[in-house]
Design a protein around this nucleic acid. Structure first.
Lengths: 145, 145
DNA sequence: GCTTGACCTCAAGTTGACTTGAAGTGCTAG
DNA sequence: CTAGCACTTCAAGTCAACTTGAGGTCAAGC
C-alpha cells in the first residue's frame, strides 16, 4: 500500500493542493503521516474524494458530506436520516426535471412573450409550488482559476 | 392590473424584502414605479420570481438566470445555448440519481466498512467518472434567519 | 401633532469553500 | 555547497448572494 504525496492525489482527483489541505483541516479526509513536512495519503482518499466531489455536485455542503460519510467514508448517521437525504435528493431531481422542461419549452416555444404562453405559466407555477416545499440547497459555482 | 408593495410580493413569494431589493439592484427584476419612496411591482414579478427560485434550486447562479430569462422573463439567449443548458441539467440529474443510489446503499448495506463493499465502490467510481465530465455548479445553502 | 408601521438608502458584515501570498523546510542533483 | 523543486504554515483575500443596522421618509390613525 504505497503512500502518496499531495501532488499525486491532486493529479488523480483534479483537486488543488489548497483544497486538499482545507479538507484535511475541516476533517473531511486525513493524511496518514508525514515524510518530513509532506503529508502522505493512503490510496483510499482518492475514492473518498470522489465521494466528496459527488456529494458536492449533488448540492451537499462539506458539513453535510462529513456528516454522511465520516472521516473514512463511514457514515456516522442513522439510516433514517440517510433515507431523508435520499428523499431530499428525489425532490431536487424533480425540481431539476421541471427546470429542464421549462428551459426546453423556452428554447422551442415560438410565443412572443413567454409570460403569456399558458404552457409556460403552467410549468412555472407547478414548479414554484414544489419549490416552496423543498429545502434542498446546492453548492455554488466554484472559483475556477 | 393592480400594483404591489414590496411586502405583498414577499408574502406571495416567501422572499425577503432585502432579497427583492438585491434582485432589482442586479437587474433580475424591476419595479414599475414608486409611490412615494415605495417600489410598486407588477403582478408578473411573482411568476418571474418563481422562475428565479426554480433556477436557483436547479443550481444556476443569478447571473446565469438573468442570462436565461432577461429582465422580464424573456430569454435573451440563443436556442442552442438553452439546449446546452438543458443538457447540463440532464447531466446533473444523472449525478443526483447516482448520489441517491449511493446514499440508499450506504443506508441499507450491512457491510462493516463501505470502502470494502464492491457495490459501493462501483457506485462511487462510476459516479466519479461522470462527475469529472460535468461542469454543473449549484447554489449554496442560503443563510436562513 | 405625534406615533406607528411599512417602507427607503447605503455601507458594512456574514457564510462557505476555497485561493493567494509570503516566508520557510527538506530532499535531490549538479 | 547551492539551486531547484515540491512541499509546508499561516493570515488574509475573494466570491456570490444576501442580511444587518443605522438613520431617514411618508401616509394613516389617534
Amino acid at each position: 500500500m504505497k503512500l502518496m504525496d499531495i501532488g499525486e492525489v491532486c493529479e488523480r482527483t483534479g483537486l488543488r493542493p489548497s483544497a486538499l489541505r482545507y479538507y484535511e483541516d475541516v476533517g473531511l479526509i486525513s493524511s496518514l503521516c508525514r515524510s518530513g513536512l509532506r503529508r502522505q495519503f493512503a490510496p483510499e482518499v482518492v475514492t473518498q474524494l470522489a465521494l466528496i466531489q459527488m456529494g458536492k455536485s449533488a448540492g451537499f455542503s462539506l458539513d453535510e458530506i462529513s456528516e454522511m460519510f465520516g472521516d473514512n467514508g463511514q457514515p456516522n448517521v442513522p439510516r433514517e436520516r440517510l433515507h431523508r437525504k435520499a428523499e431530499d435528493l428525489q425532490r431536487q431531481i424533480a425540481e431539476l426535471k421541471a427546470m429542464r422542461e421549462v428551459i426546453k419549452h423556452v428554447a422551442d416555444c415560438p410565443a412572443p412573450t413567454h409570460m403569456e404562453c399558458p404552457t409556460f405559466r403552467r410549468l412555472v407555477t407547478l414548479a414554484a409550488r414544489r419549490a416552496g416545499t423543498s429545502s434542498r440547497r446546492v453548492r455554488r459555482k466554484p472559483h475556477l482559476r
